[in-house]
Design a binder for these strands. Sequence first.
DNA 1: GACTCGTGGCT
DNA 2: TAGCCAAGAGT
Length: 349
Amino acid sequence: MLKTRKRRLPHLDSEAFRTALIDWYESNRRELPWRRTNDPYRIWISEIMLQQTQVKTVIPYFERFVQEFPNLAALRRASEPEVLSLWQGLGYYRRAKNLLVAAKIAKSVPQSYSELLELPGIGRYTAAAIASIAFGERRAAVDGNVERVISRLCCIDASASKLKRNCESVSQGAMGDANPGDWNQALMELGATVCRPFEPQCDKCPVAKFCKANQTATQSKYPIAKPTAKPKKLVHACVCPVHKGKVGLCKIASGQWWAGMWEFPRTEVDTTETPMTAAERLGFADLQGLLIVKHSVTQYSITLHSFVARAKKQKRELSWFSQDAIAELPMPAAQRKVADALKHAVIST
DNA sequence: GACTCGTGGCT
DNA sequence: TAGCCAAGAGT
């Protein structure tokens, strides 16, 4: 069934390599909140939050999330807005939506790789990570860190998706009788702290003598980088309508960025108009400039111009909230910055 | 296989 | 600083 050509890598499939890696991990592993527990639920939450997100960023979100939803039963009872509120600022909000869907599907955290794979939001990496860390299943988990570590160890010239399968095969074959959870985490930890993208700390690497890239001084060549496009520039304008102490917002429709979250009425600014002209197109007058926020969404870099408008009445197509209520709404990061600025502006006037 | 989806850390 | 990148998954 496995079409992957069996790769013989005696220099990695050895007790010496495993011992060097695991010993290093046991004395250098960072103390992280999700490492203080064997609770499969918490390990699941951490792995979802860690997708494409740095450890440092995740920590406070993880702490708040498991405090609010300490187990699967508690999460299952949550609503999507509640989960999105706890997730706001973390990005990739589909993760939060899929997590909630998965929690409602699963009676308990699935204990095997194949069962985990069936849940929405859980792919090859995450299923392998949870299965190995929480349940000891012998399954290689390959994330960006592991791809970098193994592509350097073996000087693998493959790129993109081929590299991932390739590294899975290598890791699986080299795991031997090591503890699967420790094995996977050791490779990731090594990639995150020593075998970094730039300026790898090879002098501190426990497996440097096994590394072909180190031997040939080609660390910077691996993994093979894919060409990146220049971000496209966009300009957006939004208006914070204020009327009798309330502020008007709208819920973002499905199919758009940040679907299901809340924002101030927003529009694109055409190259032929000014931000204020575009903002007036939203149906407001007497605009006062509030804040300019620069943010980005993958290949777009966006400049968001925000304005305050004293509305004559509360437009019915908007929902009107007090400042305190706005604090509870799930909002995109840039919009949250505008909301914070508005709060201070209103207080100071 | 190539795109899409967020945000902040780091250099 | 501008750009790269992060414990990826879904389509």
